[in-house]
Nucleic acid binder design. Structure first.
Lengths: 408, 408
DNA sequence: GAAATAAGTCAATGCAATTGACTTAATGAA
DNA sequence: TTCATTAAGTCAATTGCATTGACTTATTTC
């Protein structure tokens, strides 16, 4: 056939794909249920006992699962439960923010083993790249000191930074977030660390974290409403993170208010409910050292300026929640923030009553809105969770062949 | 283990799943590329020539593909292209609207073979159910007259009706759309037809149609902005229709306008840009016989009332497009409507200039907004396309085991 | 004509899940 | 105590689909 035009098609699969999927399903089941016997796994995955036995044996050999003491459950031979081995795999997560960068090392079950932080000098990647590589190196060394075989079991490096990605940019700030986007960051990090590198925006990272160890654990349809310097939504759809056609899905902060709102043209949600808007409201410089702590104090003592911002922001977010519910029909919405915990909590408390929406249904199980992780490190945690998820979670792409065979 | 608490886990897979997936990949590739040789398929799917040969032989035996005349392409043995056989499978689609119901029969490639329509009497399912079953029966009979083996190759019945689904409802209209929702429609239809039945809302159906034979053909991230009696968005995410946690994702018409808009509380997009709003604007009764044609005439002669509605609606939709782009980051947005073609076209022309959004990127290929199918039957077509898609498109769920084995 | 190139087939192999019988270890009833 | 019952888990053989490597066929190029 005409070799000129590219042929569009999905990949096929083979027994390797089958096997890979089944291994992932086992790991996923153990992650969700804590501990399960081989018989449990066989029932839950609809595979045969024998198949499960083989796979579990394999996973045990690979150091990913271990057996626990046998338990009697009535008649019949006692079962031997298995659970995940935390030290079975590790990943490093990197958060790049405006003036700070954080690195985290996690294990297979999402426990944080190392935290490290560094200030990013103004001037963008020209100066920042080395700081980041050093930070990763430092994290990696610390991890190697704590966990045996950590290097061998390192599955990748996840990176989170503010989006959106890939746009033509006409303005920039002293920290040059825009410059970071044009910088070949992934390539630099891959070359500098020798690890597989993947990028997501900070709201997605938050959602990834919530899915591994937080409120979205085991939930297939959840949206994280993330309030950072900007605002974004991290989307868990069909049990997987959804990034959109260009990795920018969920940039809810850039939604313009409707034309009839009689607002200054092109006002966006971000303008009234992000930390940036709070800093502006307070007349604070986002780069001010110790701002986070000062903010913490202000919120604690019920500073009126902060309180009035909370009222305004909560009103906007109330609408944002309704928007998310209406558009995504998730099982739950999770509020996350990189701000001080108390601020997030107060914001969370100020949002109700929620507006009527399709989420207001009689058969709900999860709450419409819940508080997510309030740790400012949760974005970095999500960054670290991504490689773990990519390596071990069941997903369509994992069954597909990635390369053709020698013979054809 | 404790049998009491249910174990959450995904299904495993086996060789059946592999084989099923690979068959679907072949069909998908032929659908997307028109015609391909076995060698083409092997390269595109990354499977071996032999595997492809076996599968194609199977598919040919099953009457799903046929070979065409061999073509010479330079050196080497000429290749034998294959294409899908339209008569390889059929499906029936049913659209239930307020006062009318439509049925369509399509073949494997989405060609419409039968159209049938009936008025729905007021009074909801009590009276309507029989009308619908008769309409389906009629469509089926006609199809059997046209296509050989149609009954044997009928893969299912797709149903489309206005959402949202599953809410507690406190008001209703004479056509009792709400009553339809509480009625065990799927069960009734499954029992009455003996077919597999699936339900989607009308915006989703439109997206399904656009994906099979329209502007979303071969595009993995697309959103249909559908203007019917209400407004909705049909979501194609990662190449599959996304329905949300409860089948209500994309109910964009129910998005409330932000609080700061100084509007009557709880105004929604639907109030100004749906056909319902147009009927109200014109003081027309939606149930008026021949309304569609009258509207057609009005639009054609540039009726000022219609024109002013178009202006208003276009302004709202301009915002709606920006909202969709910002939230889903699709490759393209497709405007669909169940109204008269000219109305849809005028609306489409009135929407630009589009608002700035993340979709406004330097590396675009598809237009940000395009006109979809303007046929009022496209919802019914989408309903019919769903069973075809479910039976033949590659998707994650298709590889998973659905039942455990005898032995275990 | 002969070499090169590509499509497609043949027969054997490989591999992961399946099958059915079997073993082990508990409970509960006689 | 004994023995049937129930359930977990193993063993060895089988199945079924993709793969492998050699081979055939048909065309172009030199």
């Amino acid at each position: 056939m005409n070799e000129m035009r590219p042929i569009r098609a999905k990949s096929g699969t083979n027994q390797e794909g089958t096997s890979a999927h089944n291994r992932r399903v086992m790991i996923d089941a153990l992650r969700l249920n804590g501990q399960l016997s081989r018989a449990d796994l066989a029932r839950a995955t609809k595979l045969t006992k024998q198949t499960v036995s083989n796979i579990i044996e394999d996973l045990e050999q690979d150091g990913l699962v271990v057996s626990l003491a046998a338990v009697r459950n009535g008649r019949g031979q006692p079962s031997t439960p298995y659970r995940l081995v935390p030290d079975g795999a590790f990943a490093i997560g990197l958060q790049i923010d405006r003036h700070v960068t954080r690195a985290i090392a996690v294990d297979l079950v999402g426990t944080v083993l190392v935290r490290a932080q560094a200030n990013l000098p103004p001037g963008g990647p020209a100066h920042g790249a080395k700081v980041i590589l050093d930070l990763i190196e430092h994290t990696r060394t610390e991890l190697a000191g704590i966990a045996d075989q950590a290097e061998k079991r390192l599955v990748g490096l996840g990176v989170a930074m503010p989006g959106p990605f890939g746009l033509a940019i006409d303005h920039d700030d002293p920290w040059m977030m825009a410059a970071w986007q044009n910088f070949p960051l992934l390539e630099t990090l891959a070359a500098g660390t020798g690890l597989e590198v993947a990028l997501q925006n900070d709201a997605s990272a938050c959602a990834t974290a919530e899915r591994m160890v937080g409120a979205a654990h085991g939930i297939d349809h959840a949206v994280c409403l993330y309030i950072g310097y900007g605002i974004g939504a991290g989307l868990i759809l069909n049990g997987e993170l959804y990034a959109g056609g260009n990795g920018n899905a969920g940039e809810i902060g850039m939604v313009l208010l409707p034309p009839s709102a009689r607002r200054p043209a092109q006002a966006s949600l971000e303008h009234r409910a992000s930390l940036a808007s709070l800093y502006q409201h307070l007349g604070a410089d986002p780069a001010e050292p110790g701002l986070h702590e000062r903010l913490n104090v202000l919120v604690n003592k019920d500073d009126p300026a902060v309180a009035s911002w909370i009222d305004d922001a909560a009103e906007e977010l109330r609408w944002g929640v309704q928007l998310i519910e209406t558009i995504f029909d998730p099982q739950t919405v999770i509020l996350c923030s990189s701000g001080p915990e108390i601020l997030t909590r107060k914001l969370f408390e100020a949002i109700p009553p929620l507006l009527p929406s399709i989420a207001d249904r009689p058969d709900r199980s999860a709450p419409r809105l819940q508080l997510g992780m309030t740790d400012p490190w949760s974005v970095a945690l999500g960054a670290a969770a991504e490689p773990i998820s990519r390596a071990f979670d069941p997903r369509f792409s994992a069954i597909l062949k990635t390369r053709a065979n020698a013979i054809g």
